[in-house]
Design a protein around this nucleic acid. Sequence first.
RNA 1: GGUCCCAUCGACUAACGGUUUAGGUCGUAGCCCUCUCAAGGCUGAAAUACGGGUUCGAAUCCCGUUGGGACCA
Length: 494
Amino acid sequence: MSDTKIRVRFAPSPTGYLHIGGARTALFNWLFAKKTGGTFILRIEDTDEARSTDESVNAIFESMQWLGLDWDEGPVPGASLQEIKSKGNYGPYFQMQRIDIYQKYAQQLLKDGKAYHCYCSSEELEQARKDQLENKGSLKYSGKCKKLSQEEKNSFEAQGKKPVIRFNMPAEGKTGFDDLVRGRIDFENAQLDDFVILKASGIPTYNFACTVDDHLMEITHILRGDDHLSNTPRQIQLYNALGFKNIPLFGHLSMILGPDGARLSKRHGATSIMEYRQQGYLPETIVNYLVLLGWSTVDSQQLFEKEEMIQKFSADRCSKAAAVFDPQKLLWMNGEYVRKTPVERLLELASKSGFIDISNDMKYNLMKSAVSLEQEKIKLLTDIAYKTEFFFKEVVEYDPKAVEKTLKTPVARDILTGIKTKFSETQDFTKENLEKLCRELAIEKGIKPGQIFHPVRVAVSGRTEGPCLFGMLALLAKERVMQRIDYTLKNLVQ
RNA sequence: GGUCCCAUCGACUAACGGUUUAGGUCGUAGCCCUCUCAAGGCUGAAAUACGGGUUCGAAUCCCGUUGGGACCA
């Protein structure tokens, strides 16, 4: 294997947004490619005509780009989808652009006696399934149409029936493979039925299109969710029947579940990647959290730089058990990333998502300073607007509870008057000097510094919680601070 | 119903037969730091699903049971 270049793919169906599970699969493939110097391919499996939408294709592009999961081969977004699909070199990555290829291979199987036409109606199949259920058998196709004579076929055709093409599964023996994460897995061929490879419409089914494409795209490793585990022997059988050599190595990743142990779904809250962006998560957080869902290092390292993640990743350290998605840990991790991300980038991301307005230099500079003061308290980018609001507003909104607690006291007037005097007498509005002045006043009044700090904080910000008081005063600057203290003395204290 | 997969604190996981009084992280409880809120530091509670084997020794290997999941749909 070492002399062959590694090629992996992520092959989503565009039947909805890119969700947590899909993103995790994409990430693991991406990591595997990066780590091995291989190629990461994006392929759009849009053969479910009824449910596939262009909107979903765009959502997949957008989500993967946001996460930084760049692909080496595949459709190139940017142009309109129409354009992407019609271009010869990009079209190959949409399965609906490749229908003739699948049909050709289906014909080959037909010719080799490895597939056959089936004229059974869905009603007949439904009935057969019911009977099997009653007889406690497995639900598999009877193989009835395998033995159809040419006259019978002609008669069906004469009735206007369109056949599907079924794969002729060997009845004997086993199909097995060495799973990259689970080890040896074997299936009895007798348990695998003659599944449909080409629908009456001429459109291939998932297993068939996937197998043909993986072969033609020279995929070497397939990392996918373990919901595909039972598809794998079918695909291996197809490889053999089609005469495809170099069957890829398969690795089946465990599922991601919601807190109640059921497969992660809409009712557990946000499942789409873009929702997390809207909620104010950083892409680095999502990537880091996702890699921990089903993979770990020997020392259970939690936080990874991207390069480090690539370097340490390995498929054989993927876990076999399903993982429950934990929003609390995700939130914690976002706080970690917010704290270590440069403020400039925080502002850029928040602004792009429309969480903040930094449309001119003045706003930008003030926001930058404000976010620096608040950075360690920010968990989500969506927190920024509220946390920095009072720096921007002309008129402060005073929290009634805060006013009640710290301003409606017998001493508040005296303290704020004292502070007003001290502040008005100085031109040195640095945080060091401001702190010195506050502490001086405390000594003069014979009270604890905290008794000064709290009313001043509420007077200038309207809140009891917030950043370091002196950094806040310095940033607000003398004029605003004096203004707000005046307002407070006039309207809020006893 | 059949087949396949899985099973360590509430959650993510480590320990790939002996270094284990089962480690780390989130969450949670308490304490410390502190102008508030955070952040940080320290300490605690908290798990090998169950039953049989194999072995001097089992979370780890085997079998069964139970439970969960996936696929057939």
